[in-house]
Nucleic acid binder design. Structure first.
Lengths: 237, 237
DNA sequence: CGAACCATTGACCACCTTCAATGCGAGTGG
DNA sequence: CCACTCGCATTGAAGGTGGTCAATGGTTCG
């Protein structure tokens, strides 16, 4: 019998936390090169790149937030994740980007041309391995999201999502956690594979269950963290 | 206005094709080390590793097929992908495996301890970059699957899945493609986020629409490839 | 031959979507 | 200052897609 370890509902969209968690805090080669790379600003709603663009650069988000998504011909959208400060953007193996990256607010990114990156990778053994760790981190996040879109109900999805956001926000106040949601209901819906109406209704249900409280629609107070965790794992009715 | 490039319904589960497509056919370092790594056999239904196991080894599948999946506490299962000969298994950034890998038939895998891999990566610049490319390839597959589980209908999902399988099988006969499905309806369902009943019913509908024909339940004849492609992109009723 | 597993089909129903109306807040211009 | 608009969130009603439960048939294996 297979020992089913708990599937952790992390959605850890921290794309380069492998980097941040590096055992050696001495500036890694990737870190070193990136910190010297030129900085560019993007306005809210501006695209860093779109699907089909040549994959010319590796980016690191310095400030702001970026939404990664795919679209179908009829406009249906799947959000793949959100990037925050410190995250690498533009990892991939093909010649062209396979998804879109759009700043959700004013953002600053460091830009490292892939041509240069490949040159570095050829001489610096650590560099390629750092890239690998960042990609593997993203892969784990994608796998977590797959569990949600494929198996979880709307309630379970939103609970798992809120837990993941709580884990990166972690602003505690008078006992219970406060979560800031720097994205719209539409972003959340397209992330979880739900409509905005379902997202909104599920927020309402969570409020009625006294599990969360909504100060504004962008700020969630977690009243019962245990219940939220049970919900995310499908252990509640 | 954003130029919406066609979202390619690939599901390219070929995990290490970055490797196979390497421009230099000269044995890469990864290739070289792996070809010298010890070989181990796994019987059908045997697990290569399970979620929570220490991530001790990097594997390459030499023959057979391996199913990668996550499970929820109540038994719901999400298949993340299928690995075939040549694919790398066991990529990740955490200390423990975050999903299960189960041989679906008798399989042989080469085993390279991560401790050794990290030592190689420290000296061989190409090695880490190859790992990165393999991880990025898997990431793209996961993103494609997300589009399916998150946005596509059952019909669209199955069409996209069949197209992806056709792309890797490609056995043509008297004009139309033949697809072999080396997995059960349950595997397909858990992959696409559907139940086996829905998968079965959707196969039946595709047959009634004269888009496919089912010789056996494991062999699909594609009668109308264009219609299948339209379906996968949501461009048909 | 029986057992076990898998696939198919049917009936029913629940969850989520769709369509629609309302409310709310920010930004803009009269 | 206020009316207007626009975008976003919420809520309601109706409908459909896919899930659940159940029965049947086919295939493989012991």
């Amino acid at each position: 019998m297979l020992a089913h370890a708990q599937a952790s509902p992390t959605f850890d969209t921290a794309r380069a936390s492998a980097l941040r968690n590096a055992p050696a805090p001495s500036a890694s080669s990737l870190e070193g090169h990136l910190s010297r790379a030129p900085l560019r600003s993007f306005g809210a709603k501006e695209h860093v790149f779109t699907e089909g663009d040549p994959r010319a650069n590796l980016y690191r988000l310095e400030s702001g937030a970026v939404c990664l998504y795919k679209v179908m011909p009829d406009g249906r959208r799947q959000v793949l994740g959100f990037a925050y400060a410190g995250d690498l953007i533009g990892l991939g193996s093909s010649a062209e980007h396979q998804f879109n990256a759009q700043a959700t607010k004013n953002s600053e990114l460091r830009i490292l041309p892939w041509s240069l990156a490949q040159r570095i990778a050829r001489t610096d053994p650590e560099f390629g391995f750092k890239l690998y760790e960042a990609a593997a981190q993203e892969l784990a996040a994608a796998h977590d999201l797959l569990l949600t879109t494929g198996q979880r109900t709307a309630m379970e999805s939103l609970a798992a999502f809120l837990l993941a956001m709580a884990r990166r926000g972690r602003r505690a106040k008078d006992g219970h956690t406060i979560i800031d949601l720097p994205m719209t209901r539409s972003d959340i819906g397209d992330f979880l594979g739900l409509t905005i109406e379902t997202v909104s209704r599920t927020f309402t249900k969570l409020r009625q269950l006294k599990i969360i409280d909504l100060a504004q629609c962008t700020q969630v107070h977690v009243l019962d963290m245990d219940a939220l965790e049970d919900l995310a794992q499908g252990e509640a009715g």
